[in-house]
């Protein structure tokens, strides 16, 4: 029994590159906690790999990429999860979609199909980028106001908090950022961020169960895992038979 996380991280233009880079830290943290991470990054964030990996009984599916009310996409906009198509693959799982609008219809449908919780955004996720940091997203302090609430959500989920608690923490981080940027010490340039931060906060949702927890799940039986032992056993039996016959 192990905790298993499936993460998709396309990386083909500015926005996906920011999400790709900002999720690296979370993978390290998950690994440090002993969580098995299936990381579908860049070209591996495709439908074929997603369909294959999703069968591995993950407790938590964390999707990064573009989205719309009906879909969440992977590399080069390839659809990974789609309304009225493959929602049943997230049955009994927690899903967090760091993508635009997917909670509007797809998220509801995932929960209706047996998903425990679907966290995400029911409108576009908008964030501001510092042009000077575009090649170094992790050092972009402007983007950090938008992406750190998202990272806090994932950190709390992987550390064992409920979906409701993780959502609450993320909302609090949004509010802290809004408070900082609307204070009298904030510069007019800082205040530029406020309409977009308020928008993202207002459209972040937690659908389904509020008390779902990222739990350990059973390892799927796969022939490939026992194949070396099986071959060894057959070799010994064969050898024994050969001696007996001889």
């Amino acid at each position: 029994m192990t905790k298993k996380l499936l993460i998709t991280r396309p990386d083909y233009e500015t926005t996906t590159n920011y999400l790709f880079k900002w999720s690296e830290k979370l993978i390290t943290e998950a690994n440090d906690m002993g969580i098995i991470v299936d990381d579908l990054k860049s070209n591996f964030a495709n439908r074929k790999e997603f369909d294959k990996k999703i069968k591995n009984n993950h407790g938590f599916v964390y999707l990064n990429g573009h989205g719309s009310p009906n879909i969440v996409t992977g590399q080069n906009g390839e659809t990974l999860l789609k309304f009225a198509d493959n929602e049943s693959c997230v049955k009994d799982k927690i899903v967090y979609a760091m993508s635009c609008s997917s909670a509007k219809r797809l998220g509801k449908s995932c929960v209706a199909s047996g998903g425990l919780s679907y966290l995400g955004y029911d409108e576009d996720f908008i964030f501001i980028i510092d042009e000077e940091k575009i090649n170094n997203p992790k050092e972009d302090t402007l983007a950090s106001y938008f992406l750190s609430p998202s990272n806090h959500l994932v950190e709390h989920l992987i550390s064992g908090k409920t979906t409701g608690e993780a959502f609450g923490v993320s909302q609090s981080v949004f509010n802290d950022c809004i408070k900082t940027l609307s204070s009298s010490e904030a510069s007019p340039a800082d205040r530029d961020l406020l309409p977009y931060l308020v928008w993202d906060r207002d459209h972040q949702v937690c659908l389904g169960k509020n008390d779902a927890v990222f739990k350990e799940t059973k390892d799927n039986f796969q022939l490939i895992n026992i194949l070396p032992y099986l071959l060894g056993f057959l070799f010994i039996i064969g050898l024994a038979l050969w001696f007996i016959i001889k």
Binding site: G77, C100, I129
Partner: peptide, 10 residues
């Protein structure tokens, strides 16, 4: 010196 990312719109 800032850009606004609006999902798949760019």
């Amino acid at each position: 010196g800032r850009r606004i990312s609006i999902g798949a719109d760019g």
